[in-house]
Design a protein around this nucleic acid. Structure first.
Lengths: 231, 231
DNA sequence: CGACCATTTGATATGGATCAAGCGATGTGG
DNA sequence: CCACATCGCTTGATCCATATCAAATGGTCG
């Protein structure tokens, strides 16, 4: 259970207010991600609360401290596509231009460090290293979305396996996966239905490739078999 | 017919050799895209010839002068996914990190302006404006890939309509579309088969939403209907 | 214990893939 | 200039992976 005792600043929308001002001088000495942590403000978001909405100005950059975040878009008819899951250490909110293309929500109760984009961009104007790192961050995001596209053209089994391997690679222990998100979240990330995700998981368990310790805890039993199923 | 009389420097792979050196001083006075045009070298690529390959070092940045370019990836079993089509004026090759995630080919005989990435990055180190524009370019690409994902979760009809509207928006005349790419290219961009693309187009023609003047020339007859079908 | 929500499992439907054939435009050689 | 080969596109028939609809199970919290 990820329930935290900490202050819940926001339940539905972040009241973004900043007083902190850190001299930019030492920013270049660290990764951008550290800069965010140093200059930013930590906020808590309850499970399923909105961090920002699609089409809002992208005034802030975010880094997950604990918990998990999903970005998503909803089509006119209600179909939802999840763009990405962000885990502790991941930076998000830098999708593209000045307007968010996706909405962001906490998957579980989460803590997120927030920093004003303008502050970083101002910093970048003076410090090439910050500029370079903002670019690198965007490039990483681009790569991730490209990989996501490659997932979406595969069969259901390949998508689920790909998802598990991706999550495993991003987890502290890469043998045991603790999934913060529901089957519906996974389905909406993979462009499948919950039923198909569920069936595919049982099927993988029956073939001894994985073990479902609980519905949210997956053990990778046979990585070779999984890689083979990954297309 | 797009056959050009100009020098065909490369048929399969670009022999990348540069002698030109332009002083960086005036680069900031223009868009990055103009900088590329000024500092770069124009090369010709025959229809279907490779511009660069997946996993090659991304040493160059490219701008389409004429023709059209596709980027793509092929999975182990032969499935091909087209990542994007680039038309005259578009910049490509900046997908992400230092290694190309996709391969690039000329869709039709094309002319492409090529510039050394390292030259631009060196320029960016001295000129914030260049740095910013490299970032903007990457952000635009990111947005494009995100839009592509939203296409891929839709129905076949919505994908085809989305593709037509996207192409129309990028064409000089947005009423009449001259498609440089084959049905197979479109299918691989949309994650469909040629048969489904073809059937969907005839179906759109039967419903008077479009007209297929020739198989490569599409006239948008009823934009409202198309938007309605776009999901 | 009982209500609620997430997940799994089962039965059936369907959109798009696959397999197969026909057609039309373009180019080539006789 | 025409017959024919080729290639890209369209159309038709059938199949199958995944969606949809429906119900049962299980885990969590009051």
């Amino acid at each position: 259970m990820l329930q935290q005792a900490a202050v819940q600043i926001a339940t539905t929308r972040a009241p973004l207010k900043f007083s902190q001002q850190v001299p930019a001088a030492n920013a270049g000495r660290h990764g951008l991600t550290d800069t965010i942590e140093m200059m930013g403000v930590q906020m808590s978001f309850a499970r399923n609360s909105e961090i920002y909405g699609e089409n809002e100005p992208a005034d802030y950059l975010y880094k997950v401290a604990s918990g998990a975040v999903r970005t998503y878009k909803v089509l006119a008819d209600g179909r939802r596509q999840i763009g990405a899951f962000y885990l502790p250490g991941d930076t998000f909110g830098l999708e593209s231009g000045d307007i968010h293309a996706f909405s962001a929500e906490a998957v579980v109760d989460s803590k997120v460090v927030v920093i004003k984009r303008s502050a970083l961009i101002g910093l970048a104007a003076r410090d090439n290293d910050v500029a370079r790192q903002l670019w690198v961050l965007t490039s990483c995001e681009l790569r991730r979305v490209q990989d996501h596209i490659m997932l979406l053209i595969k069969t259901a089994q390949e998508r689920v396996v790909g998802f598990l391997l991706e999550m495993a690679a991003r987890m502290p222990s890469d043998k045991q996966i603790e999934l913060p998100m529901s089957r519906q979240d996974i389905a909406d990330y993979l462009g499948l239905t919950i039923e198909t995700v569920s069936r595919t998981l049982t099927q993988l368990e029956n073939s001894a490739a994985i073990e479902l310790a609980t519905s949210r805890r997956v053990v990778l039993r046979n990585r070779v078999a999984l890689s083979r199923l990954n297309g």
